[in-house]
Design a protein around this nucleic acid. Structure first.
Lengths: 247, 247
DNA sequence: TGTGTCGGTTGACAAGGGTCAACATTACCG
DNA sequence: CGGTAATGTTGACCCTTGTCAACCGACACA
């Protein structure tokens, strides 16, 4: 109740606002001119809010929309027939979630809000239609999807070739650059996800994640108090992520 | 020399032949009517041949074409900054290779022929243009790319959650269904890739792959003489792939 | 026929990281 | 504010898998 009111409020305030959205340089509008942006504005369902832990969409449910993160953070995951869950990505403001189900009729993964998160909902048939009208949009979507493939390949490498320390160093650095790109501090930030999520994502046990964090801390690479993370020695972390053990 | 003659020959024989290609139900034409197929035919560079071990394209090289496998097999791989290579996929007739670089200007991965392989080369600017004209084509490409994402996610799960035996069982079954879909025997086939490739793909050491193969053989699950593989007990393999250890 | 190379198999051993268990800390909520 | 659950940390132990090394068979080639 309370929530839906808030949604409507915000929607009114920011009506037709892709143009004014602070994320326009990260998000879909990136590829559009202002008249095209207006078309996009018309189909976007703005400011849907999800509380921490709420499901944005669920694997195998009918697929009819992608979601652009406005604020907060989202994790996506797939569950196998054998019932094991694997987190496939963390999404931050400006990111587009749900591309792995593009042109399919059911969701290939689930998405859950890691904290209070607001998103723009973009109906997929409309998105395809826009892509068909606007070459720039089509190009951009193909680009985003290929990037998603690359990210996933990157994850595969991490999972199959790197040690626990390398994986965690790589994750921290990846988060760092992503925060940086969003005009936030690249050296001091709050993890949006729990240790559990990190462990799952990186294919490790929670205990291992915990141990590596304290080891990094003892080596003076980071300072960590719960989810509050400070990267103290980025160069060493980078060396570590590349497999140079003698950090 | 010899080879280029052969190429030209074959190209002449099969001129404008998406319609008659035996793979049209797997490949791009799947989504097209016959007039659209003619348009596609015009832009396809048919029957380029690669010998075993030849590079189809190389990571970071300028990207201007996707490749549809006509016969043979291709592996794709990415190398990280730290110099480690990870095979990201095996491609069989009807599959489209290179989608991970869509709408980018350099290749995100390398592709190498595992055996003598013929492909159709599809210039990417043309492909985008066709997609722009034909909604069915756009839809299909988005679909293929999302499927690629899903495959990669699947690989991530395999790498992070499954034991060596489970991974290999899953790979064998995946190959089995892929052969089956191409009207070949799902229980008796020749592996297009070396043990080494399997090991790399599954994030294992070659020795482990070897050991698991012989273990499977001793358990009566498969019969393996080099690359010649026979799946003897598919149900047990499926149980194994799902993590039911008591096979 | 010998020799080198490559791919595959097998054995011995070590280690990275999982599992189990106990404990500490934080977050949540009536 | 206190009690309970969820989350994070640490320790001990063990198992799966990687590493190192030897060996085999197939194939190419001189």
């Amino acid at each position: 109740m309370n929530q839906s009111i808030q949604v409507r409020q915000t929607a009114t305030n920011t009506k037709s606002s892709c143009q004014y959205c602070s994320l326009s340089n990260l998000c879909l509008p990136l590829a559009l001119d202002s008249s095209e942006m207006n078309r996009l504005d018309e189909v976007v369902n703005r400011d849907r809010i999800f509380n921490r832990g709420e499901q944005v969409f669920t694997q195998n449910a009918p697929f009819h929309a992608c979601f652009a993160v406005k604020s907060g953070a989202i994790k996506t995951s797939v569950v196998t027939e054998s019932g094991e869950e694997q987190i496939t990505g963390f999404f931050m403001p400006g990111d587009l979630v749900g591309l792995d189900s593009m042109s399919d009729d059911t969701h290939a993964s689930s998405a859950k809000a890691l904290e209070r998160t607001s998103v723009c909902e973009i109906p997929v048939d409309q998105l395809e239609a826009l892509a068909h009208i606007m070459p720039g949009m089509q190009h951009h979507i193909l680009h985003l999807m290929s990037q998603e493939i690359r990210n996933s390949h990157q994850l595969s490498v991490l999972l199959s070739k790197n040690t626990a320390e390398e994986r965690i160093a790589a994750l921290l650095l990846s988060l760092s650059t992503r925060f940086h790109r969003r005009k936030l501090s690249p050296t001091h930030f709050n993890l949006p996800m729990a240790r559990n999520d990190i462990a799952n994502f990186l294919g490790l046990a929670v205990e291992t994640v915990s141990r590596v964090f304290t080891r990094f801390q003892n080596q003076g690479l980071i300072r960590a108090r719960g989810r509050d993370i400070e990267l103290v020695n980025i160069e060493a972390l980078q060396a570590m992520a590349l497999g140079n053990t003698q950090a």
